[in-house]
Write a protein that binds this DNA or RNA. Sequence first.
RNA 1: CGGGGUGUGGCGCAGUUGGCUAGCGCGCUUGGUUUGGGACCAAGAGGUCGUGGGUUCGAGUCCCACUACCCCGACCA
Length: 409
Amino acid sequence: MKQSQLFTHTLKESPRDEVSLNAQLLIKAGYIYKEMAGVYSFLPLGLKVLNKIEKIIREEMDDIGGIEMRTSVFQNQEVWQKSNRWDDSVVDNWFKTKLKNGTEVGLSFTNEEAYANILKQYINSYKDLPAYPYDFKTIFRNEARSKSGIFRGREFYWKALYSFSKDEEEHYEFYDKAKEAYRKIFQRVGVGDLTYLTFASGGSFSKFSHEFQTLTKAGEDTIYIDEKKGIAVNKEVYTDEVLKSLKLDKNNLVERKAVEVGNIFSLGTKFSAPFNLKYVKPDGKEDLVVMGSYGIGLGRLMGTIVEVLADDQGIIWPKSVAPFQVHLIDLRTKRDDKIYQILQKQGFEVLYDDRKISAGIKLKDADLMGMPYRLVQSDKLGDKLELKRRGSKEINLYSEKEIIKVLQE
RNA sequence: CGGGGUGUGGCGCAGUUGGCUAGCGCGCUUGGUUUGGGACCAAGAGGUCGUGGGUUCGAGUCCCACUACCCCGACCA
C-alpha cells in the first residue's frame, strides 16, 4: 500500500495520558487509537497485525482439532444463573444492559456457560465427543481499573477454545496438545524464548492451571522461574508445598515480572454439571462431559510483542505479524512506483513511502513503525536498492533482480 | 472502590500576587528554497481554557460540585 493513502500518521511525542510503552509506541506509530480508559480502536495497521496473530492462532487451533465458531456477545441471564455466575455479588465485572422490554442481558466476559449451553443441545452420545469449539470474539469486563495500556482493557479481543471430553484421560490428552500448540503460537509470534509455562492456581477441579507468561517488566504478574527446566510458578501458588509437588528447588528459582499471554484450565465438571451436559456411553450409562478452557488475549499479545522487542527507536515486528514485510522508502527527487509494483507482483507485502516529505521523517517513521525490512531508493544509490533489517545495523546494496531473491530468503 | 496527580488549538507544553486582544514548539494550509536521520524563509488557518455553578468591576488564574484521564493500592472466571 502507498503510505500517502494511509490516513493515519505518526506522532512525534507520546500522548500525555499514556505511560505504558506498548500503548505509547502503538499510538505514536499509528496502530491503535485510544477511545477511553482501557478501550482502544485498532487502526488499519493495527488491524493488520491483529489479523496476522489471529491467523497464526487459528492455524494452531485447527491443527489440534479446534473448530471455529462464534458465540454471541449478548448473553441470556437464565443461562448464567444455572452456574450461579449471573449475580453481581458473584461476578462483579459484568457489563449488563436491558432490552426494550426490560429483560436484563449481559455482555460476554467469558464463554464457559455459552458453550456448555450450546453443546448441551448437540452432545448426546459418546460419538459426539470429543469436541473442541473455539471463537475469536470481543469480550467486555468492567474492570475497576484498567492499566498497562493495551495489557488490561475493559474491552478486548480474544481467542477462547473449550474442550469437551469423555473423561479425564481424553481431557488431558488434549490438554497436553493445547500446551504444545500454545508454545508454537508464542514461538511463531516472536516471544517464545521469553515465554514460560507457568503453574498457577487451578480452581476446584485441578491442582493447577497453566499460564503462559512472557517476561517483561511491564507485566502485572510475578513468577518464579526454573531456567533449566523452562517452567515457572506464579507467585499466587508459590509455597513450599507446591514447590515440593513440582519437584522444584527454591534455590534454582529466579523472581521475574511477566505478563500472562495465555492460559489453559481444566474445568472438570464444574460447568457440565449445572448444565447437565451428559452423554451416553457405549454401555448405555450416562456420564458428565469433562471440560477445559484455553484462552489467549490477542490485543495483549500484540502489546507484549511490542513491549518485549522494541528498541529506543520504536517497534520491531517479527516477520510473522508485521503489517507489511517491506517498508519501501523512496528518497529520490523523481519518484516512480516501479519497484513497488514489481514487489507487489512478486507477492510481497509492501508499504511504499511515496510521501513528499524529508528523508529524515521517512527514516524515523520507518524505525518507529517497525517493518522487518527497510528498502531505500535514493538518487545517490543509482539503480541499487539499500536493504536494512529493522533492529540490525547491517546495510546491503542490491540490484533490482537480486533484491527479490534476498527478500524471499 | 481508597489515596495521589493532571485536564489550556490535532499533539506536547507555558501562562507570575486575578487585569488589556490567551502564548510557545510541533503539526496543518499557501508560496518559494531544500532533499540520507524529524530542513529553511515568508504569509495564514485553527481556542466553549474538561463541565456546571459561585466570588469579583474583571476568572485560564480564587472557591464548590461534577466529570475524564494517569499513577499507587484493593480487585482480576
